[in-house]
Structures are given as C-alpha cells and as structure tokens.
Amino acid sequence: MAKARALDRRRKSVRNIRKITRTMELIATARFKKAMDRSVAARDYTKQLAKILENIAAAGAGIVHPLLEVRPTKRSAVLVLTGNRGLCGGYNSNVVRQAVAILGQWRGEQVGCDTTVSGKRGISALKFRGIDIRRSFTNFEDKPEFDAVAPIGREYLSAYAAGEIDRLDVVYTRFHNIAKQEAVTEMLLPLKPPEAEGQGAKPATTLASQEYDFYPSAGSILEEILPASFLSRLFKCFLDAAVSEQVARMVAMKAATENASGLIKDLSRRYNRARQSQITGEIMEILGGVEALKQ
C-alpha cells in the first residue's frame, strides 16, 4: 500500500505544479500581448524619424555629426538587458553568454569597459563571473517607459560627447517574431549613418523630398534629430527585451505544463498498477486462507 500512496502523493504535487505553470503561461501570454502592442505603437516614431533623416540626406546636406564619427575604441560601454525573474527558459542565460563574450573581447583588447546591467538575473550572473558592474537597474519590467529609458540614454550621449566612452554596445534579446528571438550585441554609438539603415530611399520620395524647406536649417535639425534617433533605438532595445522575455516565459511555461501532464499520466499508470497488484495480492491471500480452512 505504501508505494501506491507515495505515488498518489507525488501525482497530487505534480498536479499543483501544473496549475501554477499553466497560470504563469496565461499571465505571460497576456503580458506578451500588451508588450507587443506597445512595441508596435512605438514603431511609428522610429519610422517618422527615419523619414525626416532621409529627407535631410536627400536635401544634400552633408551628414557630419560627432555622433556618427567612428573613433578608435579606447573605452567602451556595454549595456546588458536581462529580466528580473527567471522561469523563462534560456532567455537570461543567452544574454549573459553574449555579454560575457563581448566583455571578454574588450578585456582581450585591453579596452576599459563600463558595464551597466538591467535585471536582477543579469546582475547576479555577471557578479558571479567576477565582472565589475558600474551601474544596475531593476526597475524595468514588462512595460519599460520612455521617460525611464531616456535619462540613461542621455547619460550615454553626454559621456560619448565628452569622450568618456568611444562606443556603446547593447546586449539584449531581439524580437524577430513570435517564433524567433535571439540574443544579440548591437552597437548603438557611434550611430550608423541614415543611409546604412536599410530601406534605401525610393526615387519617388527623393524627388518629393527636395521640395522641403528646413527651419532653421538642415544642419540644426540633424543636430537635434540624431540624439532623438539614438534614444528611440535604445528604447526599442528595451521594448524588444520586454517582449522577448514574455515570449520566452510563455514558451517555457507551456513546455513545463506539457511535461507535467506527461508526468501525471505516467504516475497515474504506475499508481493504478501498484494498486491493482496490491488488490491481486490481497485476493491471493484470502484464497489461500479459504483453501487452508477447507482442509
């Protein structure tokens, strides 16, 4: 009897775990939808900025700006975006692995590195590897706000302008689609010139754009728009990381729920067998007793 009862107890606890993972999956799904909506809504801004930049480029103003200038890297900054919580598959560990790779690369090249980490998971993982973290954030959850991201970006901009850093890399999980997210290292500073952004200007828009007047001048607008474009890219990294985290958790919890179901099936089978063999044993005992009484 002992074995059957132990199996039953295990089955009950697996059922409870399945309930929890199922709920977490549903929560992650709801959060993912919200995060996705925010990410979609944020696309317009980037698109409009790119359009204005394209128009400035087409107007023939030479695009020269300190933010675009590639300098030899003497001191670099790395921003690592991870989650505050685990139970989301390989989401955090993939980002940490990427971060360790780039930090190792800078160390190999004798370049000083200014490391900033967002998310409790990343902070503890990098601390464990003995990496010196200059600054850390734990306030970014599934809804990063522009007003919270912008000050961080502005600090990087002023450090870059002052020559304190020569390069900024962001390590985060890029969201391609619901089936594909990958941990990447993206260079945000120096900014890539607008032409290199893909989506080559179509001849029609170039023609139309030459009619634009600029107030006060194309150069002055460029000066303002490049920092804005940097901030929006940085914000997009945060949004992507948030969306990817929810997707990763959704997938991990779905797998966990399925595994729990499989385990319950297996345990039920073993429990039934144990119960049956116990009943059979008892019948045999009774039969044995009856036979003994007959004699």
């Binding site: 204005i52 009619e211 007047d213 600029f214 006060p216 002055s220 303002e224």
Partner: peptide, 10 residues
C-alpha cells in the same frame, strides 16, 4: 492650413 508648402522644422 491646407496647401501649405512642405517643410521640416524644429
């Protein structure tokens, strides 16, 4: 208003 000449401004 409608028909304004195109411009980009700060």
């Amino acid at each position: 208003a409608r028909g304004h000449s195109p411009f980009i401004g700060r």
